[in-house]
Simulated assay, not measured.
Amino acid sequence: MCATTLGETAGDLMSMTLSIGYGSSSLILITPFFVSQLVRLDARCFHLTFYCSLI
Rank of each mutant, 00 (worst) to 15 (best):
G23H: 06
L18D: 01
F46V: 10
S25C: 00
P32R: 12
L41Q: 03
G7I: 04
S19Y: 01
M14Q: 05
Y51C: 08
L29Y: 05
Y22T: 12
C45I: 04
V39W: 00
G21R: 10
V39L: 10
Y51R: 10
G11L: 05
T31K: 15
S24A: 15
G11N: 05
S26E: 11
S19Q: 12
L29P: 06
H47C: 02
S15W: 07
A43S: 15
L13T: 07
G7T: 10
S24N: 10
I28E: 02
T31R: 09
H47F: 13
F50D: 05
F33S: 04
M1W: 11
R40A: 14
S36A: 12
G21V: 13
T9H: 10
D42C: 14
M1H: 13
M1E: 03
Y51E: 11
M14A: 14
M16S: 09
T4M: 11
T9I: 08
G23T: 00
C45H: 13
F50G: 05
M16G: 00
C2Q: 07
T49P: 07
D42E: 12
V39P: 00
L38P: 00
C52L: 09
L27K: 07
D42T: 13
M16L: 03
I30C: 08
R40H: 15
I55M: 13
T5M: 07
T49H: 14
G23K: 01
L38D: 03
R44A: 07
H47W: 14
A3C: 01
T4L: 13
L48V: 12
S53Y: 08
D42M: 12
L6I: 09
S15P: 00
C2P: 03
